[in-house]
Amino acid sequence: MSNFLRAVIDGVLTGSVYALMAAGLTLIFGVMEVINIAQGILVVLGAYLSYVLSVHLGIDLFAGLIITIPVMFVLGVGIQWGLMRRLGEREKVSMSILVTYAVAIILEGVLDLIFGPGYLQLTAWYVNQSIHVFGFYLPYIYVFGFILAVGLLGSLYFILYRTEFGRSLRASQQNKTAARLIGIDVNRVAAITFGIGVAVTAAGGMVFGATTAFNSNSSADLISRLLTIVILGGMGSIGGAMGASVLMLVIEAIVSTYWSPTWATLVFYMVLVLVLVVRPAGLFGQKAVRAQ
């Protein structure tokens, strides 16, 4: 029982961080109908940035976010302005996948060139020390990461539903032409959305890097998990992505506790396949994924 409880708690805590990273991905899709394959490597980049700040400049991991979040935001805006904005409307989704895939391998090459193939892990006192809950030990970082993720998701919610920008964003999400007609600068909204979608990887990457050993190759696994989550949650749905993250990470934790960690990742994709066989629109998807 305590094993089960542990798996569930583990899944919920890590799931919240995945929820944050997936929210960025699904937000970008919802507004621009582009899929950002580079999200995985951006998370890894976020982890490396935190690593540099903490090791070379001695800045605390959480304090470092004040620097890394804006940096990632600017990078996101840059990708939108420099590349995604230029995509034609034809085969836009597929093209966006290829373009961001190219961005991903460039970043992967650069990171590998700088940091080498060795695995790194972020450290701090809260990574090394654990608290005692329900009869097992849990590193503080899981709890802090959870609080951070929930806090950022809360701010994201606030931005989307309580601000003027959020209104423009949701309008663009529903009908781009109509949004343009009522005077919304759709290009600006798209750039900022991409920025926000990428900015969350700074926080996600920091927690990821503190809980997992990573190298530039970790991005492939990360992006496939995030995509799985986003599809299961119904593409474009932030709530769906949050639900799917927690659900999937709990399932993974349970499988790895009771069966074996090697098969846990496999279960992740198996669930995706099974769900799509039954519901091609995803677990939580209300609007069927639009045909091109």
Binding site: I35, S94, V230, I231, M235, V273, P280, A288, A291, Q292
Partner: peptide, 8 residues
């Protein structure tokens, strides 16, 4: 659909 296909 097409884009889900890519991802799946």
């Amino acid at each position: 659909k097409r884009h889900t296909f890519v991802v799946i």
